[in-house]
Amino acid sequence: MSSAFAHATIGTPGQPWGPEEVAQWRARQVRQRSHADDVLAALVGLDAQWQREPYGELVYGSRRYPLHALRSKDWQDHRPTVLVTGGVHGYETSGVHGALRFAREHAAGYAGRVNLLVVPCVSPWGYEHIQRWNHDAIDPNRSFREPSPAQEAAALMRLVAPLRGQFAAHIDLHETTDTDETEFRPALAARDGKPFEPGSIPDGFYLVDDTENPQPAFQQAIIAAVEKITHIAPTDAQGQLIGSPAVARGVIRYPLRTLGLCASVTGARYTSTTEVYPDSPRATPEQCNAAQAAAVCAAIDFVLAQASA
């Protein structure tokens, strides 16, 4: 059974899902990997370099998911502060492992120059079930608003709230996958009682800037770093990427705060959402993780260059 057909069999076509339909959807989800083994265990090996900061717990039925961030051990309030988030959509694997890779291999190079707060897996249930939504069929990356309907978004907002106004930059690590078109968009249409309108998936890396606070030089600095590792997505025949007009090579813009996107959570001047394409025949998982880490490094390098200018 195709994913699109499977979602269409839940509920009544043209009518949004209620609790019964959400329960049917949830019953079809299968745990496929371990947050504890893949993420929490990886954090243990970083304790010498970082201060590990528990910031809450997700409770879904009988399962509990501890939430952990990494904070610079030598935090100083006068330094620029950068937030790195991954796994807001748990199925976007390189967001999680790219954030961990940055923390493990690159962050030490910025010690004494910048405060870093890294949240490698915002949505552990989504990570384990390879799902875009959370346990309640809610998209965390449309839920960064008060009050938030998603536990994942609410917990991250609580973590960030005491530091809001101190962040120079926030880079949020995502992927655009073929399953966006074959599974998750059909599911969204079914959940909301709307017809599914087919689209296309860009072949390559691209970024999402903020319509309400565009920072083109910041985005291009990231593009320049990432294209050394993987290819930048070309536009389609309409000059678009994933249905939005490209404003520069590899860059589109969304109204981050209006849409409740994670990249709006800090109020930072410099924000970007990365979008890696792991299903490309021209990219490997290793390249995807490396591209995410390179994007983070480029963002920090840009912030430090601006601070010293």
Rank of each mutant, 00 (worst) to 15 (best):
I229K: 01
Q287W: 03
D209Y: 05
V30C: 11
G250F: 04
D38F: 06
A295K: 00
K73Y: 09
A248K: 09
R64L: 05
Q51C: 10
T176F: 09
R145F: 04
Q51P: 05
G239Y: 13
N213C: 11
Q76H: 14
A111P: 04
A99L: 07
T211I: 13
P66R: 10
H7T: 14
Q292W: 01
H97R: 09
L83R: 06
F196D: 07
V265P: 09
A99N: 07
S280L: 07
D47W: 00
D136W: 08
A41M: 08
A154S: 13
A153Y: 14
R145V: 15
A295H: 02
T271M: 10
R28E: 11
D139H: 08
K228S: 03
L58T: 01
R33N: 08
I252P: 00
G11V: 05
G18K: 02
D37N: 14
G260N: 04
D192M: 07
G18D: 08
Q238M: 04
I252S: 07
P214L: 11
P245M: 05
L116M: 13
R158A: 15
G204D: 05
D38T: 08
T179R: 13
I138W: 10
R269F: 03
R132P: 11
I242A: 14
T274A: 03
G267H: 04
I252G: 05
F218P: 11
P120A: 07
L100K: 04
I201W: 06
A290R: 11
L70C: 05
H174V: 10
D38H: 13
N134G: 09
G112M: 06
P216N: 06
A291L: 04
S148K: 10
F218H: 12
Q219Y: 01
R142I: 13
A291E: 03
H231S: 11
A224G: 02
L43P: 14
G18S: 10
L256N: 07
D77T: 15
S123L: 14
V208P: 02
E286V: 10
E92A: 09
T274G: 03
W17L: 06
A111F: 10
R63H: 11
P54M: 10
S2P: 15
V119N: 14
Q29F: 01
T176H: 11
E183M: 15
A295T: 01
G61W: 09
D192V: 01
G90Y: 12
P13V: 03
P19C: 06
G260D: 12
P80C: 07
E197F: 05
R145P: 00
H174G: 07
A168F: 03
T93H: 14
A293W: 01
P80N: 07
P216E: 05
G260Q: 04
V22L: 03
Q151G: 13
A161Y: 09
A137S: 11
I300R: 00
R282H: 12
V82I: 06
D139Y: 06
L241H: 09
T284H: 03
